[in-house]
């Protein structure tokens, strides 16, 4: 049986490095996904992924095993993301990629590359890219609480129950925020002339 994350983290607290590398192997992909779907830049997302793991190791004594490890992990990632936005987008809402930028990322794969499924027509890929960029733009128009729930549920594919734990809100609130944000987003897209 694979050891639970919390068990591994308990070993990390006692200085077990192999346990820490095991935890990274297990979860680094989801941390990377978390950042990639926000910054759409391979290099930045990789750097932030490593930053998060370093923080977790340095603060390992502060981890309290009454929290599920993935919840803790997402909280650290979320705080790191917020810090990043403060530094890089101070005073502005966290809008990342405009439609014009969507296909011109120099450092990582373009948004079109990322979105394009094999066999999709160029028109379809262009439409998907535009829609994705518009969705991100639209999410930035939502209230902070709604946007956070939307990003965690849609970008990060996290279940409602865990979102509730990460944000420290009831699952019912997650559900209602998700419904409201989707409703507002569809209305906003419609005003922008885009019908998903």
């Amino acid at each position: 049986m694979k050891p639970a994350d919390e068990v591994l983290m308990a070993r990390v607290r006692e200085g077990d490095r192999a346990a820490f590398e095991h935890l990274i192997d297990r979860h680094e992909r989801r941390v990377f996904t978390f950042f990639y779907r926000r910054v759409h830049d391979n290099g930045h997302a990789e750097d932030m992924t490593l930053d998060v793991w370093m923080k977790i190791y340095q603060a390992r004594q502060n981890y309290r095993p009454d929290a599920k490890f993935t919840t803790y992990l997402y909280r650290v990632a979320r705080n790191h993301w917020i810090d990043y936005m403060r530094v890089h987008h101070s005073g502005s809402r966290p809008s990342m990629v405009s439609i014009e930028d969507a296909g011109s990322d120099q450092d990582g794969p373009s948004l079109l590359d990322a979105l394009g499924a094999p066999g999709e027509s160029p028109e379809r890929r262009q439409y998907s890219a535009e829609l994705a960029a518009k969705i991100r733009e639209g999410v930035d128009q939502l209230s902070t609480g709604e946007a956070e729930v939307f990003r965690l549920a849609i970008f990060d594919e996290i279940r409602y129950a865990e979102i509730g734990r990460i944000l420290d809100i009831p699952v019912g609130t997650v559900k209602s925020r998700m419904h409201t944000s989707m409703h507002k987003l569809r209305r906003w897209l419609s005003r922008e002339g885009i019908t998903p």
Partner: peptide
């Protein structure tokens, strides 16, 4: 529409 929005919000993520 919701399904399309969800799919579009989850672009493929490249390998590390």
């Amino acid at each position: 529409q919701i399904r399309t929005t969800v799919d579009a919000g989850r672009p493929a993520v490249p390998a590390l």
